Computed example of a mutant assay.
Amino acid sequence: MGKYEMDFEKYRKAVEKVIQRFADRGWEEIKIEEVWFETSLPVDLIIEVINQGISIPSEVKLITHGGKTIWKNPESEA
């Protein structure tokens, strides 16, 4: 089980890094498909990582997949 948790940590860091890069470019809405393109991680894994909790910059207002909201900034009114 320890090995799985270590691998999950790598996935979490990879997803956080890509989302931070998008935020640095001024993106307020990020699509899971864009994260997938940058990381090559399976879409289901990316969604699981986000649902388990990651650090998302305050500039990001929304993360979507297939037109559905996966994550919404609680401070956002959009």
Rank of each mutant, 00 (worst) to 15 (best):
H65S: 01
T64N: 00
K68N: 14
P42E: 13
N51I: 02
L62T: 10
A14M: 13
I46K: 02
D44T: 14
G2R: 14
W27F: 12
D24E: 15
E5V: 10
D44M: 12
K68Q: 12
G53W: 07
K13R: 10
E29N: 05
E34K: 09
L62Q: 03
R21V: 06
G53N: 09
N73V: 12
E16A: 02
A23R: 12
I30R: 02
F8T: 03
I46G: 07
I30M: 09
P74Y: 12
S76R: 13
N51E: 15
I19M: 01
G2F: 10
I19S: 13
E38N: 07
Y11I: 10
E77C: 00
R12E: 13
G66A: 01
K68L: 02
G66K: 14
L41N: 06
E59G: 04
G26E: 12
L62C: 01
E16D: 06
P57Y: 02
Y4W: 14
R25G: 07
G26W: 08
P42H: 13
E77P: 05
S58H: 07
I30H: 02
I32R: 02
L45F: 04
V43G: 03
K72R: 14
K13D: 05
G66N: 10
K10T: 02
L45E: 15
R25W: 11
E34W: 11
I56R: 09
I63D: 05
Q20G: 06
F22K: 15
S58V: 06
Q20W: 03
K10H: 06
T69R: 06
G2A: 01
L41T: 04
N51T: 03
R12P: 09
K31A: 09
E29Q: 15
P42S: 06
I46A: 04
G26A: 01
V35M: 05
W27M: 11
V35N: 00
L62I: 04
K61W: 05
E77N: 11
W27D: 14
H65L: 08
M1G: 15
V35S: 03
M1L: 09
G67I: 03
G53K: 11
F8M: 08
E34F: 00
D44F: 01
K13L: 11
I54V: 10
S76K: 10
I46C: 00
K31T: 14
F22S: 09
I47V: 07
I19V: 15
I32L: 05
I63Q: 04
Y4L: 02
T39C: 01
P42M: 04
L45K: 12
Y11W: 13
W36P: 00
K72Y: 08
I46R: 00
R12S: 06
A23F: 11
K31D: 14
V15Y: 10
Q52D: 10
I47G: 06
I70P: 01
G26K: 00
T69H: 06
L45I: 15
A14S: 12
T64V: 12
I30F: 01
K13W: 05
G66T: 07
F22E: 13
D24W: 05
P74V: 04
D7A: 14
W27E: 15
K61C: 04
E29I: 08
T64E: 15
F22T: 08
E38V: 06
K72W: 02
W71D: 03
E33G: 02
E77V: 08
E38R: 08
K72V: 02
W36S: 01
